[in-house]
């Protein structure tokens, strides 16, 4: 034997993996570390000074408006995840259990189409629909109702979030439900479970992982979204992404913006970790 085949194979494999590792280090871990470092910098005369101080942290964590913004964002993203999950579920159920294989394929294809168009463009189209003199109010006006203010409200923000996440949540839920063994709901009915209760007793427990992951995606996307709260929500009160923009614009406060960004990252890590742990939790076998 001339050479050890194992070490040669490792080099070969590494030559393929190395670019990805370098890419990750350069463009993901690097910026993240820099952002964390930046949150400890200082700003003097509108210039950033590279030091290690807790000034930005102290400032942001002691201001009520930051926490208002934090819980507003948290609440609205959670609401978007909840509403998207609830609205999508009946449709996903129909597609998974009532539609034929062909119909389901077409539905999923059609649900992908919204992603062809920029989210920004889709959001702008809501302006026309939701405006004071828009399509919805014109329709309601025909019945002597309204006009209602829908833009620059929490409702507008929610509509924007749903525009972003609903197709995705519906696709994820449909795929999850379609993978359920149809004999299990049938077995439940055979044991005396009425059809409505089958959803609660059998379908939800079986689909738990997929449903939680779908809701988690909706939460993550909404939590970090800048477009919906800015254009449809009127940016007041600001959500965290808007707060970041505002902070950087006023007085070059990049360290304070970095603090908000790190807060968001940590929140997402915690929620993603908890959700996945819950989604995949198997019953303990004694």
């Amino acid at each position: 034997m001339a050479s050890d085949p194992k070490s040669r194979l490792d080099l070969y494999a590494l030559s393929f993996r190395l670019p990805i590792l370098v890419w990750q280090a350069l463009f993901f871990v690097g910026p993240l570390a820099f952002m964390l470092a930046m949150s400890f910098f200082d700003v003097k005369n509108y210039r950033m000074v590279e030091t290690f101080e807790l000034k930005a942290w102290e400032r942001m964590l002691t201001r009520g408006y930051v926490w208002d913004s934090y819980f507003l964002t948290l609440g609205r993203a959670a609401l978007a995840a909840l509403v998207a999950s609830l609205v999508a579920f009946p449709a996903a159920w129909l597609l998974a259990f009532r539609a034929s294989e062909t119909q389901r394929r077409w539905a999923i294809f059609l649900l992908v189409i919204p992603f062809f168009t920029s989210y920004l463009v889709r959001t702008f189209s809501w302006l026309v629909i939701l405006a004071e003199s828009g399509v919805v109010n014109a329709g309601l006006g025909a019945f002597g109702l309204g006009p209602y203010t829908m833009l620059n409200t929490g409702f507008g923000t929610l509509v924007g979030y749903l525009t972003l996440v609903l197709p995705l949540v519906l696709i994820l839920q449909t795929v999850t439900l379609a993978h359920i063994d149809p004999r299990l709901p049938a077995a439940a009915r055979n044991l005396g479970c009425p059809p409505g209760r089958v959803i609660w007793e059998v379908v939800l427990p079986l689909a738990k992982t997929g449903l939680v992951v779908a809701a988690l995606f909706a939460f993550i996307l909404s939590f970090g979204d800048f477009v919906a709260p800015y254009y449809l929500g009127g940016s007041k009160p600001p959500t965290l992404p808007i707060l970041i923009i505002d902070t950087t614009k006023s007085g070059q406060q990049w360290p304070r913006a970095a603090v908000v960004a790190v807060m968001m990252m940590l929140t997402l890590f915690a929620i993603a970790f908890a959700s996945i742990a819950f989604a995949y939790r198997k019953r303990a076998s004694k």
């Binding site: 004999r183 049938a186 009915r189 005396g192 059809p195 079986l206 019953r283």
Partner: peptide, 22 residues
């Protein structure tokens, strides 16, 4: 008579046990 109102339990070929219950 709908399935759930009959008392005709079936032992399935696949058994169809609920995996989320012990």
């Amino acid at each position: 008579v709908p399935v759930h109102e009959r008392d005709t339990p079936l032992v399935w070929q696949s058994l169809a046990l609920f995996p989320f219950l012990n």
